Computed example of a mutant assay.
Amino acid sequence: MTTLGAVLRPQLPPERLRDIARLADDVGLEELWLWEDCFREGGISAAAAALAWTERLRVGVGLLPVPLRNVALVAMEAATLHRMFPGRAVLGVGHGVQEWMGQVGARPESPLTLLREHLDALRALLRGERLTTRGRYVTLDDVALDWPPAAPVPVLAGATGPRTLRLAGEAADGTVLTSSTTPEGVRRARRLIDEGRASAGRSDPHRVVVYLLTATGPDAAVRLRAEFESEGLGPVPDLGVAGDAGAVAAAVQRLAEAGADAVILQPTGDEPDPEGFVRFAAEEVRPLVP
Rank of each mutant, 00 (worst) to 15 (best):
A220H: 07
A159V: 03
G102M: 00
L165Q: 03
V143E: 12
E109Y: 03
V208W: 04
G201Y: 11
D244L: 13
Y211W: 11
V104I: 11
L239Y: 10
F85P: 05
R9A: 06
P218D: 09
T182L: 00
L68C: 03
L64S: 04
A50L: 08
A46T: 00
R88A: 05
S179D: 01
F228L: 13
S179A: 13
L122R: 04
P218T: 10
L112Y: 03
A157V: 12
E284P: 10
A250Q: 10
I193Y: 06
A168H: 02
E284M: 08
P154F: 07
V248E: 07
L122A: 01
V97H: 05
V176G: 08
Y137D: 02
L12Y: 15
P218E: 10
A151Q: 13
G135Y: 09
A78Q: 04
A258E: 04
V66R: 00
I44S: 01
A198C: 00
R190F: 14
G217E: 08
V97M: 09
P10Y: 08
F280Y: 12
T181Q: 05
E55P: 14
L4S: 03
E77G: 10
V153S: 03
Y137W: 11
G169A: 09
V209L: 14
L8D: 07
T132N: 05
A47S: 00
G42M: 09
W33M: 06
P154R: 05
V104C: 01
T164D: 01
L122M: 03
M76F: 07
D238G: 06
A172I: 14
A258N: 09
P205S: 12
T80A: 15
L224R: 05
L34T: 04
L288M: 11
T182W: 01
E36P: 01
P67E: 00
V252I: 14
R116Q: 06
G102N: 02
P237C: 11
G60K: 07
F85D: 02
A249E: 05
L91S: 01
G105C: 07
G87P: 06
L57C: 07
T182A: 03
L177W: 13
G28W: 12
G87W: 15
W53Q: 02
I193E: 00
F39H: 04
A226M: 14
V104Y: 03
V176S: 03
T164R: 00
A282V: 13
V66P: 02
R202Q: 14
D142I: 08
P152S: 04
R223A: 13
R22A: 10
L224I: 11
H82R: 13
T132V: 04
D219H: 14
V74I: 09
E129Y: 14
L4K: 02
L165E: 07
A151F: 10
